[in-house]
Each structure stands twice: as structure tokens, then as C-alpha cells.
Computed example of a mutant assay.
Amino acid sequence: MAADIVRLSYPASRGLGEPIRLALVASGIEYTDNYLRTREDMVKLVEGGKLMFKQVPLLEIDGLNLIGSEAILRYVCRKGGLDGKTDEEKVKIDMLAMGAKDMVFQNVIYSRFHEILISKEKAEEDIRTAIKECKNRYLPVFEKVLSESKSGFFVGDSLTMADIVLFDALSCVNEIPEFKEIRLMDEYPLCVAFIDHFSNQPRLKEYLTSERRHTVIDLEQAAYASRVMGWLPS
């Protein structure tokens, strides 16, 4: 592959790849999606020697083979100037990004995989825990940070990695049927307004309304990703 071609290898879903896609778009970095659609696609990638720990996402950029979703995201955000302007901003970005990822992955996303791999009962337990955690630990914090913002962004006066990760997490919570049913996000109007604010940013608006943007994960997507990763038989 030519050194100037940027390619992201990941299943055709949001997951760990979506914040990276958002960061690439926000940074104005053109890239190609290499969707892993079968277990054979994943095995071929592993055998190609580009995956340090035999895991995806993989971002091929600047002649490098980058793995680890957080490492990739930080690399792209540094290139795009989305990593904060001061040490205080940088550490605040990291803390908010950590909280957003914990909120959405620990129970919300994993519930879909647990229903496929474990049981429906386990998935229902995950969702109940996720709702409790969102209300008691995460969403009030995000709402408070936004109430103190003069720019509409989470950190500083411009878009950063914190906004990217939080948009991914908040839009997921806003779209998951179990959360929509109880109208959870109605209690956090600034978080809802932030989703709209982020969605209308230059570059990002075009991407988010295009066919490249995947829907929030459902059971079909979880089963497909599980087969690609080898957690389920093909």
C-alpha cells in the first residue's frame, strides 16, 4: 500500500472504530475503510503480520501499522490538533474520554454481545446496570461540564478528542431502544444539545449524514462482529 494512503481495518460497525473515523474526518484526513466482513478477512489480516497483538482496529498511516483503539485515536487527534492546548486541557480530555468509554462499553455495548454469547438474561441485567450507572455516575457529570462551557464543547473553545468520544457515547445512549423507551436523555438537555452541536460541525455533518455512518449496534451486528472475531463459529 502506498505510504500516503490511510486505511482503517475494522468490521462494518461503529464499535471501537467509530471514534477513530470521527477523528479522521474532523482532522481532514482522507482514509479508506477496509471492512472485515468474514472470519477469513480477520485471519488474513493477522497472518499479514500488521497486528501487534492480533487485534483490530488497525490504522495504516504515515507508514505505520497502529493498533489499540485509544493509541490510534490519540495519534490521529495529535495530528489534527484535537488533543488540547494546555496540559490542563489535555488531562481533562483524557479523563472525560475515559468516562465516556466506560459508560458506553462496560454495559451498553457489551449487553449486545452478552445476549449473543451468554444469555438474554445477562443482557437484560447489563442494561439495568447501564441505566443505573448512566444516571448515577456519568450523565450528571457530562451535563455539569457542559453547563460550565461557554463554547458548547467539553474542553476549551474548540472541538477536541473529548467531544469525539463523548459524541460517540452519548449518541449511542440516545439511540439504544432500551434507553429511548424510558426517555433517559430527556433528563440531560445539554447533552442532547451537544449531540446536535457536534453533528453540525464542518466535515462531520457530511460524514454523519452519509452512508458511511453505521447505525447503533444491534443483535445482528453483534453476531456478525462476533463471527469475524472468532467468538462465534462462522
Rank of each mutant, 00 (worst) to 15 (best):
M1N: 12
D4L: 06
I5Q: 05
Y10D: 00
S13P: 07
R14W: 04
A26E: 12
I29A: 01
E30K: 15
N34Q: 04
Y35F: 15
T38R: 13
R39S: 07
R39C: 03
R39Q: 12
D41V: 10
V43Q: 10
K44Q: 15
L45A: 09
L45S: 08
K50S: 01
L51H: 03
Q55N: 13
Q55F: 05
L58C: 08
L59M: 12
E60I: 05
D62V: 13
L64S: 04
N65S: 12
N65Q: 11
L66M: 10
L66F: 04
I67F: 12
I67M: 12
E70H: 08
A71M: 11
I72H: 08
L73F: 07
Y75T: 09
V76Y: 09
C77H: 03
K79A: 02
L82G: 01
K85P: 05
L96R: 07
L96E: 02
A100W: 06
A100M: 10
K101N: 12
K101W: 03
K101G: 11
Q106I: 10
Q106A: 13
Q106E: 15
S111D: 04
S111H: 00
S111I: 09
I116A: 06
L117N: 02
E121W: 03
A123D: 01
A123M: 04
E124A: 11
E124S: 04
C134M: 11
K135L: 07
Y138P: 01
V141P: 01
F142W: 07
E143R: 04
K144V: 05
S147F: 11
E148H: 13
S149D: 00
S151M: 10
G152H: 10
G152I: 06
F154S: 02
V155L: 04
G156F: 03
D157A: 13
M161G: 03
V165G: 08
V165N: 02
L166A: 11
F167P: 00
F167E: 01
C172R: 06
C172K: 02
N174R: 01
N174D: 14
E175Y: 13
F179Q: 08
F179P: 03
F179E: 01
K180D: 03
I182D: 12
R183G: 07
R183D: 09
L184I: 11
M185K: 03
Y188T: 03
D196F: 14
D196Q: 15
F198P: 00
Q201A: 08
L204F: 09
K205A: 15
K205N: 15
T209A: 12
S210H: 05
T215C: 05
D218I: 07
L219N: 09
E220R: 06
A222R: 01
A225I: 02
S226Q: 11
R227G: 05
V228D: 08
W231T: 03
